[in-house]
C-alpha cells in the first residue's frame, strides 16, 4: 500500500517534471487535444515509434481547448483539434511571437441518426436545422408518426457540437430541451433505445453502430439525398463533413515535423481510413 503510494507520487512528480522541463522535450513529443482524435493519434504514434524506436510520442486527450492551451503554454508540441482555432487563440500565439500553423490531417462526416423503426429515411439541411433548434418538435411534420421529437446533441464543449451548430444550424442556438451527452457512444446508446430520438455522431460511430441506429440521408437544398459514407465524405457530396486538424506553434521542427509528415503520408492516411475517418489525400 505504502509502496504503491510512493510509486504514484513518484510517477506524478516525474510527469510534472517532464511536462515542465524543456530538457526532455527533445526526446519526447507531446501531442494533446481533441478526444475525437485521440485514438487516431495513438495509432499514428504507435506505428511511428515502431519505425523510429529512439523517439517517443505521447498522446493525451482532454479536449481541443485543452490541447490549444497546452500548445500556448509550452506543455505540448502539437495540438489536436476537431474545431478550427479561434481568433482569440490565434492572437495569443501571435503575441508570443509565433505563427499558428494548421494541418488538416483527416476528414470526418457527421451522421444524423434516428431509431431504426423511424419511417423517415431522409431530411434536408433546413429540416434538420428546424428539428435541432426546436422550431419543429413533432415527427408528424415531416411525415413521421405523431410523436414528440427527442433531441440528443453532444455537449457544448465538443468540437462536433460547435461544428454542427455552424454548419447545420446556421449559427442558431440549439433547442434548450436538447439532451446533451458527453460522448458519441452515449448518443448511439440513447438513440438506439428511444423510438422518437434523433442525434448526430461521427462517421466511425455510424459504421460501428450497425443496425442499432439508422443514419439518415441528407439533402442540401434540392440536391440528391446522400448517405454518410467514407466515399461521400471524401468526394464532398455528403454535406455535413469537416476537417480534423493538428496545430503547431510556428513551423514544426525535428520530431514534430517528422510526425506531421508521417500523418500526411500514404501510410498515415491508410490508418485514417482504418479508424473510420476519411483520408484527406
Amino acid at each position: 500500500m505504502k509502496k504503491s503510494l510512493i510509486t504514484i507520487v513518484g510517477a506524478a512528480c516525474l510527469t510534472a517534471v517532464m511536462g515542465l522541463s524543456p530538457v526532455f522535450a527533445g526526446d519526447t513529443l507531446q501531442v494533446k487535444g481533441s478526444d475525437t482524435l485521440v485514438h487516431l493519434s495513438s495509432s499514428w504514434a504507435e506505428k511511428f515509434m515502431e519505425k523510429k524506436p529512439a523517439s517517443e510520442v505521447a498522446i493525451t486527450g482532454g479536449g481541443s481547448g485543452t490541447g490549444i492551451s497546452a500548445l500556448l503554454n509550452g506543455t505540448a508540441d502539437l495540438a489536436n483539434a476537431s474545431r478550427k482555432m479561434k481568433d482569440l487563440e490565434k492572437d495569443k500565439i501571435k503575441s508570443q511571437g509565433f505563427e499558428p500553423v494548421e494541418f488538416i490531417v483527416a476528414k470526418d462526416g457527421i451522421g444524423v441518426i434516428v431509431h431504426p423503426s423511424n419511417p423517415i429515411n431522409q431530411l434536408n439541411m433546413n429540416q434538420i436545422k428546424q428539428i435541432f433548434t426546436g422550431q419543429v418538435n413533432n415527427w408528424k411534420k415531416y411525415g413521421g408518426p405523431k410523436a414528440k421529437i427527442l433531441l440528443y446533441t453532444r455537449d457544448s464543449s465538443s468540437g462536433t457540437f460547435a461544428f454542427f451548430q455552424k454548419r447545420v444550424l446556421k449559427e442558431k442556438d440549439y433547442s434548450v430541451r436538447a439532451r446533451r451527452l458527453a460522448s458519441n457512444s452515449a448518443i448511439v446508446e440513447s438513440v438506439s433505445k428511444d423510438v422518437n430520438a434523433i442525434g448526430y455522431v461521427g462517421l466511425g460511430y455510424v459504421a460501428e453502430a450497425g443496425d442499432r441506429v439508422k443514419a439518415l440521408k441528407v439533402r442540401e437544398g434540392d440536391g440528391p439525398a446522400v448517405s454518410p459514407t467514407q466515399e461521400t465524405v471524401k468526394n464532398d457530396t455528403y454535406p455535413i463533413s469537416r476537417g480534423l486538424q493538428v496545430y503547431s506553434k510556428g513551423q514544426p521542427k525535428g520530431l514534430a515535423k517528422e510526425f506531421v509528415d508521417y500523418m500526411l503520408s500514404a501510410e498515415g492516411q491508410q490508418i485514417v481510413n482504418d479508424r473510420g475517418f476519411v483520408a484527406v489525400q
Binding site: 478526444d35 482532454g62 479536449g63 481541443s64 481547448g65 485543452t66 490549444i68 492551451s69 500556448l72 474545431r83 479561434k86 482569440l88 487563440e89 495569443k92 455537449d155 457544448s156 464543449s157 465538443s158 468540437g159 430541451r177 439532451r179 446533451r180 458527453a182
Partner: peptide
C-alpha cells in the same frame, strides 16, 4: 432533463478556449 453545476464544469472545461 437538468444540467448540474458540476457536470457543466466537467463537460466544458476540456474544450473551452483558454482565457
Amino acid at each position: 432533463s437538468v444540467r448540474t453545476m458540476t457536470a457543466t464544469i466537467a463537460a466544458e472545461m476540456g474544450e473551452v478556449a483558454f482565457g
